[in-house]
Design a protein around this nucleic acid. Structure first.
Lengths: 173, 173
DNA sequence: CTGCCTGCAAACTCTTTGCACGAAT
DNA sequence: ATTCGTGCAAAGAGTTTGCAGGCAG
C-alpha cells in the first residue's frame, strides 16, 4: 500500500479521486506497456499518475509540472514522448479545441462512451457531455461519400447563461 | 471588367469558379472593411481573391503563395493579419482538424449552412457534408449545463472504402 | 499631415528530435 | 552486452509582433 501510494497521495491529488481507482488504471497502463514491448519506467508511470490525478483537461505543460511533483526527474521530452503512448492505450484522450495547444483528459470509463465537448467562451472551461447519438451521426455523414468513420467529435462553443446575467462565471476557478 | 478581373483571371482560378461570383464576394469584403473602419488595401483584396480562387481547404502558407501570384508585394505577416479579418467577416471559415496548422475555406454560401467535416485518414482530404441536425444537437447538449451554443462542429475521422480495396485513393491528387 | 498598413525579421509558443549517458533485461 | 529510455538542449513548425517606412484619406 505504501508503495502503491507513492506519487498519489499528494495534497493536489487528495479529494480528486475518481470513480475508477488510479492504481487499477495504472495497472492497465503497465500491462499495455509490456504488451507493446515497452518498459514500465518510473518516469512513464509518474506521468501516468500525474495525468490521472489531474481532474480537468490539462495541457502537456501542466502535466509536466504535475508529474515533476511526483518524480522530479521527469523531463519535458519524456512527457511529450509518453503522451502518444497513453493515448494509444486509450487511457488518455486527446482533446483539441483549436486553440494552438492540445488538451488531454484521462479516460476513466475506458473510452467507450461517446462524448461531446462544450467549450465555454466565457471561462474557457471544457465540459464533456454524453452524446450517444454521435456515432450514428458520424456514419450517416461519412457514408454519403464512401468513407467509414473511425471516430467523431462534436464540439460546441457556447456562452454561459449565468455569466451573461451576473458577469461572473460560477464555474470559474 | 478589366479592372475587376485583375487578380482573378489566372490559370489557377479558371475552371474553379464557384456558385457565387468572386467579384460579388469581394464587394462584400470591401464593404465589411469600410464598415469596420479598415482600409481596403490592394494587399487585403489580393489575399481575399486568392482565398476565393482556392477551391479546397488551404493553409496560411498556401494562401500566401497564391496571393503572391496576384500581387507579389503580399507578405506573410499581412496574410496572417488578414485571416482573422476575413473570418470575422464570415466570408472565410476556419477549420481546425487538430493537425498543428489551421485550414481555411471560403464561405461561398454565406456561412448559414451547418456542415460537418470528414477527414479522410488515407488521403488527408477534408470533406464538408451538410449536417442540418447539428445545431439542434449542439443546443440539446449545451442546455444540459446551462450554456447557450454559439457554434458547433462535428468532425469525423474516417477511412476511405476504395482505398482499403485498391490501396489507391481515387480522390487523391 | 496624420494615422493606418505594410514588409521584414526577430520573437514566441508548442512540439519534436539528435545525442550521449544511464538503466533494464 | 545489448537494447531501450532518458534528459538536455537545439531545432522545427506555425504564428505573432516591434519597428521603420509608405501610402491613403
Amino acid at each position: 500500500m505504501a508503495a502503491r501510494a507513492r506519487g498519489i497521495d499528494t495534497p493536489a491529488a487528495r479529494g480528486k479521486q475518481s470513480l475508477v481507482s488510479i492504481p487499477a488504471a495504472r495497472e492497465k497502463f503497465r500491462k499495455f506497456l509490456v504488451q507493446k514491448g515497452l518498459r514500465a519506467t518510473s518516469q512513464r508511470l509518474a506521468i501516468f499518475d500525474a495525468a490521472f490525478t489531474l481532474e480537468e483537461h490539462f495541457t502537456a505543460e501542466q502535466l509536466l509540472d504535475h508529474a515533476r511533483k511526483l518524480d522530479d526527474s521527469v523531463s519535458r521530452a519524456t512527457v511529450y514522448r509518453t503522451l502518444p503512448i497513453m493515448t494509444d492505450s486509450a487511457l488518455l484522450r486527446e482533446v483539441d479545441i483549436g486553440s494552438g495547444e492540445k488538451f488531454y483528459r484521462p479516460n476513466r470509463d475506458g473510452g467507450t462512451t461517446q462524448v461531446a465537448q462544450v467549450v465555454c467562451l466565457d471561462c474557457d472551461k471544457i465540459f464533456e457531455i454524453s452524446a450517444p447519438f454521435m456515432a450514428w451521426y458520424g456514419s450517416t455523414v461519412s457514408s454519403k461519400i464512401g468513407l467509414t468513420p473511425v471516430s467523431q467529435r462534436l464540439q460546441v462553443s457556447a456562452h454561459c447563461d449565468a455569466f451573461r446575467l451576473t458577469a461572473t462565471c460560477p464555474r470559474r476557478g
